[in-house]
């Protein structure tokens, strides 16, 4: 009996400790990044770091704006493609399609979500990059190497569709069938029911799923890094190379120890990314939490 009791106490303490550790993790991550980026923040003003575009660590210039703009471009492009596509697919598989198509889409979604980002990168280099440099860019009258923000956006769209789709299918499934039946019995066609009843009911859920898609796309590193070109500039059109924040962090890990403030600048970039992602994440999860409670 005594031994049983000890095991009980021990296991409960371990459970509590593990839970506390995990709950402290977001906070300690934020604080850790903040402390490591302190040397840079003490040397430079926050506003000038974010507003300047000159990036030359050896000369002590750490302007972040081109990286922030690059991140926004790639994320925005991928969302413009991924969000409508996944909305159309999720409506089709939940409302019109036969069960086997639903099952197939589920399998495809699971595997696509599991494929490592470096494989998407290889695919992007093999397929998307040549296609853009040889076909798409000349059609619009631009010349491009193919390593550009449009390639990054395309690869990212394929990667984020499974996540957005998964959430949206869940949302459309939870809408009570009675709402649909009422609308149909009033003589609305199936599509009108979807347009006026389902989409209105699912509005907040769709916003939340897109928010989560944004936070997923913001942090995607390797696949984007491989196709986006990595030139620190503010891109003027989508066929030019860009340089998103995660790519900056991943690309310079080797040389960051040798230049003063370099490490700190990369940690500051991580901090910006961390804050934006946490913001999108927490708002989206808050919306989902509210929906589930009703």
């Amino acid at each position: 009996m005594n031994r049983e009791k000890w095991i009980e106490i021990l296991s409960e303490k371990w459970m509590l400790l593990a839970t506390l550790l995990m709950c402290m993790l977001p906070l300690s991550m934020g604080i850790g990044l903040l402390i490591e980026s302190m040397p840079l923040l003490q040397q430079y003003r926050l506003g000038s770091l974010i507003r300047n575009s000159a990036w030359s660590p050896a000369e002590g210039k750490f302007g972040m704006i081109s990286f922030i703009v690059g991140t926004l471009w790639v994320t925005g492009l991928s969302l413009c493609m991924a969000a409508p596509v996944s909305l159309l697919v999720s409506i089709y598989v939940t409302q019109y399609a036969k069960p086997w198509l639903m099952r197939t889409i589920h399998i495809v979604m699971d595997i696509l979500a599991g494929i490592p980002s470096v494989v998407y990168g290889v695919w992007g280099v093999l397929v998307i990059v040549p296609w853009i440099s040889q076909k798409l860019a000349p059609t619009f009258g631009y010349s491009s190497s193919g390593y550009c923000i449009l390639s990054g956006g395309l690869v990212l769209a394929v990667m984020s569709i499974p996540y957005i789709l998964h959430l949206q299918i869940e949302i459309f499934r939870t809408i009570p069938i009675e709402l649909k039946e009422v609308s149909l019995s009033l003589g609305a066609t199936y599509w009108e029911t979807i347009k006026h009843v389902l989409l209105r009911q699912a509005r907040r859920g769709i916003i939340a799923s897109v928010g989560l898609g944004i936070s997923k796309a913001l942090g995607e590193t390797i696949a984007v890094l491989m196709v986006v070109g990595n030139v620190p500039q503010i891109p003027e059109n989508i066929f030019q190379a860009g340089y998103p924040l995660p790519a900056l962090i991943a690309n310079n890990y080797g040389e960051m120890m040798s230049v003063p403030h370099y490490l700190s600048a990369l940690m500051f970039a991580s901090l910006i990314l961390f804050l934006i992602i946490c913001l999108f994440n927490s708002v989206s999860h808050w919306i989902i939490y509210k929906i589930n409670r009703i």
């Binding site: 995990m22 997923k216 590193t221 991580s270 961390f274 992602i277 927490s282 999860h285």
Partner: peptide, 11 residues
């Protein structure tokens, strides 16, 4: 935990 789930691997 959901927020942690969404933090990318680079961070």
């Amino acid at each position: 935990l959901d927020i942690l789930w969404g933090i990318p691997s680079i961070l």
